[in-house]
């Protein structure tokens, strides 16, 4: 059911040209997907998605929109020219769905993804780390190196934005 809402929102994003409406729909899309993530037991992820998608991303996109244009210009290319793109997206999607017929059924506790390292984390966290939230335990301890990389990426992206838009204050020193 939520998927139906999500697809309707995505189609709305594809067809509307008024960017304000598109940004609002994108925020709605994030909120809906957060609900869906929560229904699939991913509380931490849903929390983050709601904070990011409905909050920060919407505001940044509104800012970018206010700095550029509010209205998307009508597409110059005719429907015929867009047909290849539709064909590529359609066939790629069909291929992916075809490949997923081989995937283990949804919710299968014995799927390969569930029996690889996850049981170790679930069983050993209480003894080795003693933190109830498994996501935090894996994020910060078992896969700490991974998270370090992510933090560096965020830091670099922040520097990039500040350099592009001139947020750095080096003027005081050069005076």
């Amino acid at each position: 059911m939520l998927f139906a809402f999500l697809i309707a929102t995505a189609l709305g994003i594809a067809y509307l040209r008024h960017l304000f409406a598109v940004v609002m729909l994108a925020g709605m899309f994030s909120l809906l997907s957060a609900l869906l993530l929560l229904s699939m037991d991913a509380a931490d992820v849903a929390f983050t998605e709601a904070a990011v998608g409905a909050g920060i991303a919407t505001i940044l996109m509104l800012g970018a929109m206010a700095l550029t244009e509010r209205q998307e210009k009508p597409l110059k290319s005719s429907m015929l020219k867009r047909l290849p793109a539709l064909a590529v997206a359609g066939s790629f999607g069909a291929l992916l769905i075809y490949a997923m017929f081989d995937a283990p059924p949804f919710g299968d506790p014995f799927a390969p993804a569930q029996v690889h390292v996850a049981p170790y984390y679930i069983e050993q966290t209480a003894r080795e780390i003693d933190v109830p939230n498994l996501v935090t335990a894996i994020l910060a301890s078992y896969r700490g190196f991974d998270t370090l990389g992510e933090v560096v990426v965020i830091f670099t992206a922040g520097i990039g934005v500040a350099l592009l838009l001139g947020g750095f204050v080096f003027r005081e020193r050069s005076k």
Binding site: A42, V45, T48, V52, Y121
Partner: peptide
């Protein structure tokens, strides 16, 4: 399975950072 949650959690935040860029 908590492992996908961890990967996606960090991916979301990295995603917003790259979107901002």
């Amino acid at each position: 399975n908590p492992l996908p949650h961890v990967l996606i959690l960090t991916a979301i935040v990295v995603g917003i950072a790259t979107t901002a860029l």
